[in-house]
Amino acid sequence: MIHQMRSEWIKFRTVRSTVVLMVLAVVLAVGVAVLAGFLVDSTMRIDDALAGVQVASLLILVLGVQIVGQEYRFATIRPTFSATPRRGRVILAKLVVLCVVTTVASVALMALSVLSAWLVTRFQDVRLVLSGPGVGRVIIGTVVVLVIHAILGFGVGCIVRQPIAGIVIVLVWVTVIEGILIGLLPEAVKWFPIAGMTNVNALVLQRDRGPDAVELLGPVAAALYSASIACALVAIGWLRIRTSDA
């Protein structure tokens, strides 16, 4: 298993697309943090500083699709499975590498975002507030949310086994389907795998936002719920991969 994980790590970092996605994520995180520094009135809170990381979660979804979809697109899955005929090891190794990379990347993105926010606020008449209740949840929750995004993308990638179709599906899901459904069925938002995670890394929980706020699951419940859906997608994808011709 350790061999497969090494192999997957080498594969991960030796194609251009994953490097491009990572660079894009950094640009997005830093860019939005800087922008937020100009837009906030007098106080910049940690969730403002990390708004870009939140947006970068879309790229993590794409990354999850890519890590398995690309192997099918370029048929490198065949040499991969020839070298490791027990396909479960390959899938698990990919998932572990993806989750570790996402964890490290999310910490790095948060650090870069906060650093950028700090630099911007130094030259503005803005106060950067990084402590207070809820900050721990924002930091840990952001890692959790990004990792769940990665697993969701990975699950879709395993099921679809084509990067382009997989990416379209996850992006349309997040931006169009969940977007429309939120408007139509606000009471059902808590059951959406992405939008339902809002509480997981929120500085202020939804229930404290006033009577008009949409009702959501608590942070832990929401994270567990979305993680379960992500794992179910991976399980379905795994069943397909296990029984299909490579």
Binding site: H3, Q4, S7, T14, R16, Q70, F74, A75, P79, T84
Partner: peptide, 23 residues
């Protein structure tokens, strides 16, 4: 099986290295 089973943006020695590592 097919010489085309390659990721176009991966360098030759990385391709081999990844395969070698898996075994």
């Amino acid at each position: 099986l097919d010489a085309g089973y390659l990721h176009p943006t991966r360098r030759a020695h990385h391709h081999l290295w990844a395969l070698a590592a898996s075994n």
